[in-house]
Design a protein around this nucleic acid. Sequence first.
DNA 1: CGTAATGGGTCAGCATCGTTGACGCTTTTC
DNA 2: GAAAAGCGTCAACGATGCTGACCCATTACG
Lengths: 181, 181
Amino acid sequence: MTALPKPEAEAARGAAPAGRNLLFLREEELRLAQDLLFFGYRDFTAGADAILAELGMGRAHHRVLHFVGRRPGITVGELLGILAITKQSLGRVLTPLVDEGYVTQETGRSDRRQRLLSLTPKGAALERRLYDRQRETVMAAYREAGPQAVEGFRRVMRGLMGRDARAALARLEAKDGEAVP
Amino acid sequence: MTALPKPEAEAARGAAPAGRNLLFLREEELRLAQDLLFFGYRDFTAGADAILAELGMGRAHHRVLHFVGRRPGITVGELLGILAITKQSLGRVLTPLVDEGYVTQETGRSDRRQRLLSLTPKGAALERRLYDRQRETVMAAYREAGPQAVEGFRRVMRGLMGRDARAALARLEAKDGEAVP
DNA sequence: CGTAATGGGTCAGCATCGTTGACGCTTTTC
DNA sequence: GAAAAGCGTCAACGATGCTGACCCATTACG
């Protein structure tokens, strides 16, 4: 347990002194959560961002590579649902990825309107490079925190997610062919 | 190259890991971490983003309100160090916040070059509104996950942070006047 | 069979938030 | 008195979102 809350600090800054320390504790807990999420997420993405920048790409490209890699054969519509962005926003990232040979589009067999997306070897290689970079960061954090902390981390992150995100994640985790309503 | 089976998904959900599935398990663990951070962070910020959008502001405004609220009297330089953005990027967000009466600038007493930033009542009110919105999300996740999970979450998030972020966080958590080198 | 709906692509324009580079002003330090 | 530090600002650019409006191919349906 590091960094216990400091009621004196708040008192010094002109808030209520004693008595409602319980409330303060919660307040400080949540402030800390905000800080942790800001700093943690930023540094989690920093490594991959640096690699992407060298290639003239951004985080949005990585997201596409990641989710296409996770679900080869995913349709454009499904990808839009996961990313929760507009078709136009996706297009600006996806089209160059296809043009430059990172992603392939294959016409759907059962529905020929669909474009099934997959990574090319080139795309898979880049995705792995980005993955490996983030892997270092995450593995270091996991090792440092311990397995029990990892489980807690997962539970809290899952709890932060809304209905749609949970459904999307369930679909991602599901085995192929397994129905997830 | 379509519809690969996903043994790692199965293993990750508790089936007996056969042979060298350990490697797969790690891979799937990290893929899951990437997903959780993406979805979790997005939904964590979604509520506040909606409020900000109504006011013609963005996430960057929130960050300023948050950190100025956390350290009243913070200098511009310190804020830049925390946010890790350029002076120009901060300026585009900070200047309007000052002009519209959310943040005050006070000339430093010991060093008159400094501009000490604080929230006005108006700024504090908005910051609290944003805080309350995120509070709902985080408290729900915390309750759902349980106190032990919360501790684990904190440990992992802290582990994701790099040196600079850890130092910045330590400074934020420190009592006023307490030296943090 | 013909029309409507769906999946996907694209053009045009706009906003936010980040960047670099360059300059100017005030104040402190040496 | 000159150098350095803290801050502000102009200009231009890039990545990532958004809306609105169309278009095309294909599928679904009456």
